[in-house]
Design a binder for these strands. Structure first.
Lengths: 189, 189
DNA sequence: AATTGCATGTAAGGAGTTACATGATTAA
DNA sequence: TTAATCATGTAACTCCTTACATGCAATT
């Protein structure tokens, strides 16, 4: 009865949501508050991963209840700050997750849906979608190239920089491939 | 009161879910049942879009309530078959959707999450993730190349084939780019 | 004085998957 | 006779986003 009560309120299904692992991974670096985590996520993995406060705060509560993080309430004046730090149990859970191969989640792509269904419309219906895709990929490419330059001068070990650059490089290659695809697709028309 | 009742039961928020448009787009081709739609989706757009029965059947009910599709119940023996056909209102809704540019939904990529967090583990932790990514992309590439050959000999207009091939070609380019990325990423290690 | 940033959270609701429930028909 | 395919649907549940609610601190 009590088990069930605790379970319903606190426990996470850590097999599906990745949020706990993003949190644990960042806390490996240094203790942080929910607010810190949000901004750190945006700054570091934001170009391929996002979290909302509505996801973050409940996850922190659950991670604490599970003993994966400790909580230290700093009261700087009347303003409270809840700083979380990772525990050995949290490190273990994170390592387990990191050692597993990533799951292949079949993607849904609305652009391709419109390209596919342009087949039932007039031929010129295709063009704006390819143009929009190319424009967006070009903008994204510019942003990612700027991020790459920033990461290159970041103070870090070679291994760290290599990992970070790989995530940026992935986005760059996808953007470049998208530009090539859209350009070739527009040509015959 | 009645308005609200009907609303809660039947109406779809066609601004967020794409399922109604996938259904309408396929019904433009020919009338189909929910079962037909499921298998047709797998066969045609399955490599970049999926739908479950749990999503399809309620969507069909709602589309019918909204007058976007008509329903014809075929009773072949004791086995019932509900065949849906698109209405002018359905065509209009579909055309509106198709004319809008696609929405850019910020992607979440678990592979990149693991690559990023390999930075806090030992350098060799990175390797299996890149290898897995390359292997998966290679398998996907083989499947897509086979699909491309099948589409090339499909009986269709040039415009139709062009649209279908573009969706397959997109997947191929992404897979190739992924293979290149993973290969280059593995090299320095 | 007003705005931006720091800081915490909850409530409601939507999209979607999975598991369940049922049953007829056809081919091996 | 057994399995696969045809066929329809619901219920429970998860993940996640958005909107809401609150208030202090620092800067302009």
């Amino acid at each position: 009865m009590l088990d069930r009560y605790i379970c319903e309120i606190y426990l996470l299904d850590m097999s599906r949501s990745r949020t706990p692992f993003v949190v644990l991974g960042l806390l490996l670096w240094e203790p942080m508050s929910g607010y810190d985590l949000k901004s750190t996520i945006e700054r570091t993995v934001g170009h391929f991963w996002q979290e909302s406060y509505g996801q973050l705060y409940p996850t922190l509560k659950a991670l604490h209840a599970e003993g994966h993080v400790t909580l230290d309430v700093e009261a700087a004046g009347a303003r409270q700050r809840k700083v979380y730090a990772i525990t050995p149990a949290g490190r273990a859970a994170f390592s387990d997750w990191l050692a597993q191969p990533h799951e292949v989640t079949p993607a849904r792509n609305e652009l391709l849906l419109k390209v596919f269904f342009a087949s039932v419309a007039e031929p010129h219906a295709l063009v704006p979608h390819l143009e929009a895709a190319r424009r967006q990929a070009q903008e994204r490419l510019e942003v990612l190239v700027a991020i790459r330059e920033a990461v290159r001068v970041e103070e870090a070990t070679d291994h760290q920089r290599r990992c970070w650059l790989l995530t940026v490089e992935y986005g760059i290659r996808m953007a470049e491939a998208t530009i090539g695809w859209a350009t070739d697709g527009l040509e015959p028309g």
